[in-house]
């Protein structure tokens, strides 16, 4: 962004130059009056050295002695008082997108800037409150939808109509979406960096595999775990499990019937989920990380939200979430 306003330093130099020029002119005037200098004297070559000497001593030197240190001091003051602002700006930039309760540290700022910083903090407050309310609302809506959706699902089960199967699929899709919404909302609400459990990745992998295997088997797909080592990470077990669950869910979606989804733990603090789909390109993963966008090969059952959830959980655990298209794997690296 091109900034239109000149910097404070420029302004200071320009004003000091102006002040210097006015001062010089005033001094010249005084000298001219005091010494009775006239243009004829100035034009007299014999008088020139005397005049030059007078002007240097009473005009140029005082001006330089005042203006130069003032300029330097002014620049110094400006720079040192703006430095805390730069630091705060960097802090604001570094605050992650989910970080709650981040505020500008007002005490480090020069008093003149405090009202501005206070206003920024008030705005952050309002944003936090608004997003908390929005998330609570999303969770409430998802919650409230469950009972009517149960009734709907059960009514459809009793229907003896060719459309019943399609309706059932729709309900299943809505149910997944609600689940994902609730997970997202819960992550946002109580995800902060408070999680400090030791989570053994191989345990999580086995839990997720045994939880999801019955469903996979019903869909004629297999789940396997290949665990190497006892790597553990610091974080929230339920959240990491939710991330792996969503990865497996996504992998099952792209794996053809009869195929196997493999959860690979290690080497080190890594969990990869390998599918038998076409492999996901990095650009596609980037799209999928953002909610509401969906890759071409994903079915229309809300997989986009699933990977957004994984991405969110990875970020809050300082893990990288990448795709290895040639190995048909999605990788969570906690190192």
């Amino acid at each position: 962004m091109k900034h239109e306003q000149p910097s404070l330093e420029h302004r200071l130099i320009a004003r000091l130059a102006l002040v210097g020029a006015i001062g010089a002119f005033a001094l010249l005037l005084f000298i001219a009056i005091e010494y009775g200098l006239t243009f004829s004297v100035l034009l007299d070559p014999d008088q020139l050295p005397v005049v030059t000497h007078e002007l240097t001593e009473h005009v140029a030197i005082p001006i330089l002695v005042l203006i130069v240190p003032m300029t330097l001091a002014g620049r110094w003051v400006i720079r040192s008082s703006l430095r805390p602002l730069e630091v705060q700006a960097r802090n604001i930039d570094e605050a992650t997108e989910n970080e709650r309760g981040f505020r500008v540290a007002v005490e480090s700022l020069p008093r003149e800037v405090v009202p501005f910083a206070d206003a920024v903090n008030a705005l952050l407050n309002r944003i936090d409150t608004a997003s908390r309310e929005q998330e609570a609302f999303a969770a409430d809506v998802a919650h409230e939808l469950r009972t009517p959706l149960s009734v709907l699902a059960l009514e459809i089960e009793r229907l003896d109509h060719p459309a019943a199967a399609r309706l059932k699929e729709d309900v299943a899709r809505m149910r997944r979406l609600i689940e994902q919404l609730m997970i997202l909302a819960q992550l946002d609400i109580d995800m902060p960096q408070t999680a400090d459990e030791r989570v053994v990745l191989a345990d999580v992998a086995e839990d997720v595999a045994s939880l999801m295997a019955p469903l996979a088997i019903r869909q004629n797909r297999k789940i396997a775990v290949e665990a190497e080592g006892e790597a553990s990470v610091t974080g929230r077990r339920e959240a990491i499990a939710a991330a792996v669950r969503n990865l497996v869910d996504n992998a099952l979606r792209v794996t053809p019937e009869g195929g196997t989804v493999t959860i690979i733990v290690g080497p080190g603090a890594r969990i990869a989920v390998r599918d038998e789909g076409p492999g996901l390109l990095p650009e596609k993963l980037d799209q999928l990380r953002h909610r509401h966008r969906r890759a071409d090969h994903a079915s229309s059952s809300g997989a986009g939200l699933g990977l957004a959830i994984v991405s969110r959980i990875a970020a809050s655990h300082h893990a990288s979430f990448t795709t290895l298209p040639t190995q048909r794997s999605l990788l969570l690296d906690f190192a």
Partner: peptide, 12 residues
Amino acid sequence: LHTVRGVGYMLE
């Protein structure tokens, strides 16, 4: 009888 490799077994 299904094998969930690396985890265990399941009777459908």
